[in-house]
């Protein structure tokens, strides 16, 4: 059995009487690319940073590579790379100086890799960081987390200020890392299209809880919208399992269900004496529907 890279048991976090995370349990085996999706203020950053051990959970526990996050030993920290939402670069240095600074902090540093990426991503290494654009800062900040070739890479909104080309290059690099099957990547975003490309698993954070965790494909296949046209007026209670949202008016109803299985369609058609149109949803639609 492979040990899980990230795990949490009933994790909860309260900061100054405000409940930010509540009862989150998760387990992540290695080799996955997880997209963390959530509205602004849903608790994505808090979740990632608590998992990382920057903060002690108020309730429950979290662990990385089987070690308690809050007191990670140095050997485990070396296997982790983190890109914060707001970069923490030393703005008086040049890009190159910042790179060698971070390199000096690590035991191993893949210099050719970083040099190659610097050139490919067009990160200016000779200019002072305070003169860089937000996108360039973000790229540099990401490079700092890649140099020691971490097994677990945690990125908080890594591509928010990148242009489409830079974003594509960035995603390709993520995939390059992910092709080594033992690496795990965890990234939060609200750019759904990025997530659909590179993530194979998805966590949806809603109001401090995990509204969904699982395969992206499974999510897409199991959440559907049903357009029901009844021949007569539909009953008030439709009795369909796992309803996410429901809007009914007389003989017509629009219902979003999770955990859908195509065999259910026939059953509903017969029971309600209605035509049922099953509409697949894009991830963006699913996200919106889950927040209704």
């Amino acid at each position: 059995m492979t040990e899980s890279v990230v795990s949490a048991r009933h994790l909860g976090k309260t900061i100054q009487d405000r409940v930010i995370l509540h009862d989150i349990s998760l387990d992540l085996p290695p080799g996955n690319v997880v997209g963390v999706l959530g509205k602004n203020g849903a608790g994505k950053t808090t979740l990632l940073e608590t998992l990382l051990g920057f903060s002690r959970p108020t309730t429950g526990s979290s662990a990385l590579f089987g070690e308690d996050s809050f007191t990670l030993p140095a050997a485990i920290k070396r296997r982790i790379g983190f890109v914060p939402q707001q970069d923490e670069l030393v703005s008086t240095l040049t890009g190159g100086q910042q790179l060698s600074l971070t390199a000096a902090l690590h035991r191993r540093w893949n210099r050719p890799l970083i040099a190659g990426l610097c050139a490919a991503w067009e990160v200016p290494t000779a200019r002072r960081i305070q003169a860089l654009s937000p996108g360039e800062r973000q790229k540099l900040s990401t490079l700092l987390a890649l140099g020691h070739e971490p097994e677990l890479l945690i990125l908080d909104e890594p591509a928010s200020s990148l242009d489409p080309i830079a974003r594509r290059q960035f995603l390709q690099q993520i995939l390059e890392i992910a092709s080594a099957q033992t690496r795990t990547i965890l990234f939060s975003t609200h750019i759904v299209s990025d997530l659909e490309r590179v993530a194979n698993r998805i966590w949806i954070v809603r109001d401090g809880t995990l509204a969904w965790q699982g395969d992206l494909d499974a999510l897409k296949e199991s959440v559907v919208r049903l357009n029901i046209h009844g021949r007569t007026a539909l009953p008030e209670h439709l009795d369909i399992p796992d309803i996410v949202s429901c809007r009914a008016d007389g003989a017509r109803a629009t219902v979003v269900v999770s955990g859908w299985d195509d065999s259910q369609a026939r059953d509903i058609t017969q029971r309600l004496d209605a035509d049922v149109e099953v509409e697949s949803l894009s991830l963006e639609d699913i996200f919106v529907e889950l927040h209704r």
Binding site: G31, N32, V33, R168, L171, Q172, L175, E176, A178, S179, R197, V198, A199, N200, D217
Partner: peptide, 11 residues
């Protein structure tokens, strides 16, 4: 394929 289409290799 993953590199060409920029999609996750597990997919």
């Amino acid at each position: 394929m993953a590199a060409e289409y920029t999609v996750n290799p597990t997919t």
